[in-house]
């Protein structure tokens, strides 16, 4: 396996994604969704009080971005991370193109690494677009007023911007773990429906599990718990324990999923 080979496969996969409607539409929705939400919020008289930072969503643009983050972690991120990853390998089965792809000058390890790189890259890009658009929509439509954090302390706009951006970054490990699970399902089931659908359903199930009483170790092991790790960044004093535990859990999911996926593809017979 060479870096050049992995890069070549990744470039080819990017070209394929660019030619497809679904990944482009998802990115466009990420870019436009926050603006639509901010505009609707500004027009209405009430605020989403039962949501974290919902009370101040009409006062500070940073709060609006954090409301979007809370909602996205629940529903949008699992879908965004699996929309490409869950289809990337299964699509070759659907189109019957494995034979064409693997009978070229790239080793299977390079094909796997290149595709995985694109899947992780797309997930990161989608979250970056969502983060950037939600912050931009908040600042442009709501305004850059100071943000009152979870401890009641007002953060200056520059502090609020840094913490909000960090909060979005903190969701990346969990998002990448979901991406890895989608990749694994895409390889093992050879079905795009399973690759895309199961991670979304799984993430929602984990969120439900987090709501019921159970051992703390189990709650910590849920990927979705990692989506709440950013709360500690917006408290005084800041605390990082949940964030670190979430990152570790996410890395574990990622390593195991990628490892099994790699081994499965390496051992697979493309037998028509």
């Amino acid at each position: 396996m060479t870096l050049r080979g992995v890069g070549t496969v990744a470039a080819v996969e990017c070209s394929k994604l660019a030619a497809q409607f679904k990944p482009r539409a998802a990115l466009a929705a990420c870019a436009a969704g926050s603006f639509a939400f901010a505009a609707a919020l500004r027009l209405q008289t009430t605020v989403p009080e039962d949501t974290l930072f919902g009370r101040s969503a009409k006062e500070s643009g940073f709060a609006l971005s954090l409301v979007v983050l809370g909602f996205a972690a629940l529903w949008v991120v699992p879908a965004l991370t699996s929309i490409v990853a869950g289809d990337l390998f299964a699509a070759e089965d659907r189109y019957g193109t494995w034979t064409m792809m693997l009978a070229r000058s790239r080793a299977r390890s390079e094909v796997f690494a290149g595709k995985a790189l694109v899947a992780f890259g797309y997930s990161a890009l989608a979250i970056a677009v969502l983060a950037a658009s939600s912050i931009a929509a908040g600042l442009l439509i709501i305004g850059p007023a100071p943000l009152v954090n979870l401890s009641g302390v007002a953060l200056t706009p520059s502090q609020a911007l840094a913490r909000t951006a960090f909060a979005w970054v903190a969701t990346l490990p969990a998002a990448l773990a979901l991406t890895a699970i989608a990749l694994l399902l895409s390889i093992v089931t050879r079905s795009s429906a399973a690759g895309i659908g199961v991670p979304v359903v799984g993430a929602l199930t984990m969120q439900l599990c987090a709501l019921v009483d159970g051992p703390q170790a189990l709650r910590t092991a849920l990927i979705t718990t990692a989506f709440d790790g950013w709360h500690g960044l917006l408290a005084e004093p800041r605390y990082y324990g949940p964030l670190v535990r979430g990152v570790l859990a996410s890395v574990a999911y990622l390593v195991v999923s990628v490892g099994i996926g790699y081994r499965t593809l390496q051992r697979r017979d493309i037998a028509g």
Binding site: K16, Y95, G96, T97, T99, A103, R104, R106, A107
Partner: peptide, 17 residues
Amino acid sequence: DAVPDGVAGMVDTPAFY
């Protein structure tokens, strides 16, 4: 290994994107 340069094949009805 990757299939060496200079080796090519067409197996079954070829499929494309």
